[in-house]
Design a protein around this nucleic acid. Structure first.
Lengths: 201, 201
DNA sequence: GGCATATTTTAATCAACATTAAAATTCCGT
DNA sequence: ACGGAATTTTAATGTTGATTAAAATATGCC
């Protein structure tokens, strides 16, 4: 939606910076407590702000979730693009995408929202997110199909296999804590190896 | 906790039946809309009841979630027991467990709650669920370790591999709809194949 | 230093549930 | 039918939390 643009485009860099931080903090809260489980006050407290202050950055709580999801979708899409633009077999490209995606989920970009409460969104936002999500799934399934075609990936039901892998990936924020016992590199190494075995011909 | 027993044990079969149905309907709602995202009225409507009527079966909304999670944990534990009591290699046993678990998630037992909002639980309930969850994870990791020891499973980080697989499994209720395009058997067949490839030595 | 804009707070308001108590109804055995 | 237990509804109550408007403060520019 271009409404976000209209709302955010003409603000200064300070604004954009804080707005982005808001999205990350909110994403972490939502991941841990769920949408309606986290009050705006919870989010605000972590930013040393009052709940009311958030409305300077966001029209409503629903929009906050939407923007978190949208940000998640964007990061996923970027990872997908990077993967697609990689050379090599279908398997290589699929693994490259996954690698970038894991990076986004656990790396510098900070907490990324698990899109687990899409139904709570307003119809328009819901449609938007669902469409992006669908596009993303299809792109991934296409990579798998490509790999099957060129013999680098073992024949399988692409839809179901995609679901399995996406599930494993989407669940990561549930147990991964930045600065925790497990490092990003461990996750990437182990997950990549896992997916390689699962997909490889 | 034995409090549930005390509350439910002396009721008749009618009661138990409806109580169970409540849990299943609630589980489906929670899976789709999230904990606080679904009102008791939502749940009640699907049972042709008033929201207030639910309090005949449950002390509070929090307890409803707790019981849903507990039911999910029980089903998982049962699947684990079945898997463990299977003969064969570590891989065989791990796959047997997964098969039973998929059956529970997609089969007759109906909607099983995704335990994604544990933080919303009361401390005692939270502890209980977390403990069961941890036990379950450990049991699964033990199966994997067993498989690695007997050579049926490729060497890997059991914790991380367990996380990956559990993520894939836990995510299923997000996209699987009973009576939808995909059947239980398809899921089982494809997921089992997937896991076999991912784990196999 | 002083104006203008950006940012945040204070102090209401308001609606949406969860929850409860009491009343009404259904269900079942006799 | 009758009577009592089981089940559900009606009709409050209360709290939580989102939202808003106006006031207050901070920040950068001349």
């Amino acid at each position: 939606m271009s409404e976000i643009k209209q709302w955010h485009s003409d603000r200064g860099p300070q604004y954009r910076f804080k707005h982005d931080r808001l999205l990350r903090v909110a994403a972490e809260c939502f991941n841990q407590k769920g949408y309606s489980g986290t009050s705006l006050k919870d989010v605000a407290r972590q930013l040393d702000l009052t709940d009311a202050a958030l409305y300077y950055y966001v029209r409503s709580k629903e929009e906050l979730v939407y923007q978190c999801y949208r940000r998640a979708a964007d990061l996923g899409a970027r990872a997908m693009t990077l993967g697609q633009s990689t050379g090599g077999s279908g398997l290589d490209r699929a693994l490259a995408y996954l690698d970038h995606h894991l990076d986004a989920l656990c790396g510098e970009d900070g907490p990324v929202a698990i899109m687990s409460e899409i139904p709570s969104l307003k119809p328009e936002h819901k449609h938007d997110i669902l469409e992006r999500s669908r596009r993303h799934s299809l792109a991934f399934e296409a990579l798998i199909a490509e790999g099957i075609a060129d013999g680098s990936i073992a024949p399988c039901d692409v839809r179901m296999t995609g679901n399995a892998i996406m599930g494993a990936v989407n669940w990561i924020p549930k147990w991964f804590r930045p600065g925790g016992a497990v490092t990003v590199d461990q996750v990437r190494a182990e997950f990549t190896a896992f997916f390689r075995r699962a997909l490889g011909a």
